[in-house]
């Protein structure tokens, strides 16, 4: 039994960025993320975008591409669409930058602008404001980034009819250079739009199902991680 259709994909990786329907193939290579501007992503200058930290820009861009791919980027009234984002390092780079403003004068000149972005879910607030999304929006921290737990929760929310549309994905800017820790995460973000009942069936990349154990299937085959799911969705288009 189908739980949801994937109707949009958006991503930013070191090699490419954009909407699922703009690509027929994907290459997976490591590297540095591009410097993101709102004009590059949305075709216009968004004053707030420039104020965001790198992690937030990354998530904002990928969710924006995903919503555009699903034809959900334009809105008049706010909509009950939820977003679940998985991450390992989250806003750690901003935490480090913020604490540098605390140390010199015992907190007297701590930056309120930076502090506001020291919670990893705050970028979801920016996304909600820009795209008028009023569903559940939160972050999941995983020891290693697969994004499956977040996808599972998003599907569960659809099963229990808490939203009719959910976005699920991951967003990670990678390990900050100054932070010594033995877990490496390839920087990037990818989000999927999951619709219980797609408004336009032609937008579907395929259907997702989940068994009682929480194992997720895309077009009948098990989903191992979100990178793999993205590759399979793009491959569907090239057939």
């Amino acid at each position: 039994m189908t739980i949801a259709s994937i109707t949009g994909i958006g991503w930013v990786t070191p090699m490419s960025m954009g909407c699922g329907r703009d690509y027929k193939t994907l290459t997976a290579e490591a590297g540095k993320l591009p410097k993101l501007t709102s004009r590059m992503i949305f075709g216009e200058r968004l004053p707030r975008f420039g104020r965001l930290d790198g992690y937030s820009k990354l998530g904002f861009a990928a969710t924006g591409f995903a919503l555009k791919d699903a034809h959900l980027d334009q809105w008049v009234e706010k909509r009950p669409i939820g977003v679940i984002a998985s991450t390992v390092y989250g806003c750690l780079a901003t935490d480090i930058d913020y604490y540098e403003t605390v140390v010199p004068e015992g907190g007297a000149f701590a930056s309120p602008n930076l502090f506001a972005y020291t919670l990893p879910n705050v970028f979801l607030g920016e996304v909600a404001i820009h795209f008028g999304l009023t569903g559940a929006a939160f972050v999941i921290n995983e020891p290693e980034l697969s994004g499956i737990a977040g996808l599972r929760m998003a599907l569960n929310n659809l099963i229990l009819e808490e939203c009719s549309i959910m976005l699920a994905g991951f967003c990670d800017a990678g390990r900050p250079e100054s932070f010594q820790y033995p877990v490496e995460v390839t920087p990037g973000a990818v989000f999927f739009v999951l619709e219980k009942t797609p408004g336009d069936e032609t937008l579907s990349y395929g259907d997702l199902d989940m068994d009682i154990e929480g194992t997720i299937f895309f077009k009948g085959a098990q989903v191992q991680n979100l990178q793999n799911l993205m590759q399979r969705c793009i491959a569907v288009q090239s057939i």
Binding site: V88, G90, P120, V122, V139, I140, N141, A149, Y181
Partner: peptide, 29 residues
């Protein structure tokens, strides 16, 4: 360093209680 990462919390709790699965952390301010 790992204590700084919220994902360490499920690992720590799971380890102390001897749970079979590590679990995940939710962050929503």
């Amino acid at each position: 360093a790992g204590d700084v990462l919220p994902s360490s919390m499920p690992e720590m709790v799971s380890g102390k209680l001897g749970l079979k699965k590590a679990g995940i952390n939710v962050s929503a301010s």
